[in-house]
Nucleic acid binder design. Structure first.
Lengths: 355, 355
DNA sequence: ATTCAGTTTGCATTCGAATGCAATAATGCT
DNA sequence: AGCATTATTGCATTCGAATGCAAACTGAAT
């Protein structure tokens, strides 16, 4: 194939120029040729802050427009060592709450000139291969809202890839994190429950391998105890609606008679509430109060109106993107932990304890 | 910086070899040097189907392992003209149903050796810039589950980028599409409603600029008419829970007294049902029957148990990925339309018409 | 040993944009 | 006008992997 750029060593007449074959996309050389300037000039036109005269810019842009030229991000990535790609790791099945975060993160990345390369991770084995994939694609950073082992994290660090954890982190390791601390809110709710006369509570926890889940459970236990409530039963769910329902069944089957149930996320709370109402024939909140965490949109549907502790997902997503872009621009940037307060959504799923 | 590959024209002694500076990632040249072979050999080792002896492969792989070498997908993309990236266009806010599809699509792409580059699109203006972004990143294909104008589609076609539409298409244009045809199911449901004594129906439609929404509405009108039901009112929603609720209010305000409401998607049906129950004090289904489309997971929560027409999202996602990979591998591949049947989920939101 | 076909391997070039450096043009100053 | 600055521009090289081609090697057949 004839070369579209001038030959180097033997600079012979370049009359075998290809006239932009149908389907071939225009390159900076094509634009340069049409505008009668050098390729460097074209490159500089598309790089903000370069030294370029107004006249030249106009000429190049005209030609670029004519050829519908857009710089090739792949080639640019190769030379600049910046792919402008950020791997976003999410776990698909676990939590229907994250799509909101995912879309927000994607938008914000895009606004910062970065693209989200999406990976789904269901297990740590998945994480293994996902990290290799991301590495092959030279991602500039990783936002992880999914499983990741210490070793996997260390590998990314060793490779100098900035990582921001979304709603999870390693306690004993320095790392960059955005998460939500609901401790004050759960404390306030526990007090409120005590004032409403509740004495016996039950907990439907999440998977123990999940940090957020563990933390919420721990805080809940502490808060309840502090306010003088007894935890008469605990069930372990997997964040799903179904596990909320079966969690309630487990608690009942164990013979416990809590007047309030704290669910570690909204989805399980909905399952729990539906099970209480439709299977056990209980009235929520008059027979049974329910409290949960997340504050996802659905939790406020009028069938549920959960009293829940909301995470400011929007602001958390923004923060995550800000933190990753900062670290992509300056890899030396130190670690940082941004902790957002939760906020109680009053809802209507708690009431005075039945007598 | 010293070059890590041998100089070309003046082949002088190459004794300024960089010993893989801390943080610099290994390249095929590093591996080649360590293994004492040429860079081409390394390249061939990582490209299945290349002519390589077993001995050579072992030697190279050993060196590669030692240096933790992984081929650079960016550089590979530049030379092969294949980025292995597929743009996935979704509209974030509109439909909480799509996350399921999105995750499935991502997984399937990954299994086919492709990566999902995620873009959120809320309007056709967004689509404009998203398409340019995708073009810059040299995506090999586009899966679109969001807005896209005819002109935008034509632009992609002109640029020879395969496009697969997910649940939307241009009727008058050849294009490659996977979607779900619920006509038989809505027909069956209409018959069933007639048999249950329903005479007056209302429709809560979706946005008119959305094809799926228009099609479902059209089919619904036809089916209802065919079965002898009268459409006494129509409201237009935007797929959201809230618009389902306000849609019902609109219908009531207009003085219509339907015994059954067909909602164009589940989310609106849930809003409608909640509004009927908690605000209007109606019993669903005994006072008012509700039917909808989508079959998303939530629709079967026991607070709702919608009678709805399910789309086989999993199989549709698989099909979309298969169709895009086929067309990435062979751009000449002709257009194709894969139409999946819906399936009625019986649910419990319909009953005999009140007398 | 010689020839020939079939494999392997290496060489040199290519993809498209960015950039250090040197050459050139534009501008200011006396 | 003459000279010193400063702002633009172009040249040549670079990023890392893939690949057509020719050289080198292998083994078998004569």
């Amino acid at each position: 194939m004839a070369s579209n750029r001038q030959k180097k060593n033997p600079p012979k007449a370049d009359n075998n120029v290809v006239p932009l074959i149908k389907g071939r996309r225009a390159t900076s050389y094509d634009v340069a040729r049409l505008a009668g300037v050098s390729q460097s000039a074209v490159s500089r036109c598309f790089k903000p802050g370069s030294s370029i005269s107004e006249k030249m810019r106009k000429r190049v842009m005209k030609a670029a427009k004519e050829l519908e030229y857009q710089p090739n991000a792949i080639a640019r990535g190769l030379i600049t060592q910046r792919s402008n790609l950020v791997a976003v790791l999410v776990s698909g099945r676990l939590n229907l709450y994250y799509p909101e975060a995912l879309f927000k993160i994607t938008e914000e990345l895009s606004a910062a000139g970065l693209q989200a390369l999406l990976f789904t991770v269901e297990s740590e084995d998945d994480a293994e291969s996902v990290i290799e994939q991301a590495w092959q694609f030279q991602v500039d950073g990783v936002i992880s809202a999914s499983h990741m082992s210490q070793a996997q994290y260390d590998l990314l660090r060793k490779r100098q890839i900035p990582v921001v954890f979304f709603n999870r982190y390693f306690a004993d390791h320095p790392n960059t994190v955005v998460y939500c601390d609901p401790s004050e809110q759960i404390d306030a709710l526990a007090k409120q429950l005590a004032e409403l006369g509740h004495k016996r509570a039950a907990l439907i926890a999440g998977p123990i391998d999940n940090m957020v889940s563990r933390e919420r459970a721990r805080m809940t236990r502490e808060a309840l105890t502090r306010s003088g409530l007894e935890i008469v039963a605990e069930a372990e769910g997997d964040f799903s609606y179904e596990s909320g329902a079966s969690g309630l069944q487990d608690i009942k089957r164990a013979g416990a008679r809590p007047t309030v149930i704290i669910c570690i996320n909204d989805m399980m709370a909905m399952g729990c509430m539906d099970e209480a109402r439709s299977v056990l024939g209980l009235k929520v909140p008059s027979d049974l109060s329910i409290v949960s965490f997340d504050g996802m949109g659905m939790s406020q549907f009028s069938s549920y109106e959960l009293t829940t502790i909301r995470q400011p997902i929007g602001r958390m997503s923004e923060a995550a993107v800000k933190m990753i872009t900062d670290r992509v621009d300056d890899p030396e940037q130190s670690h940082e932990k941004r902790v957002f307060q939760g906020a109680v959504i009053p809802g209507g799923s708690i009431a005075r304890a039945p007598t």
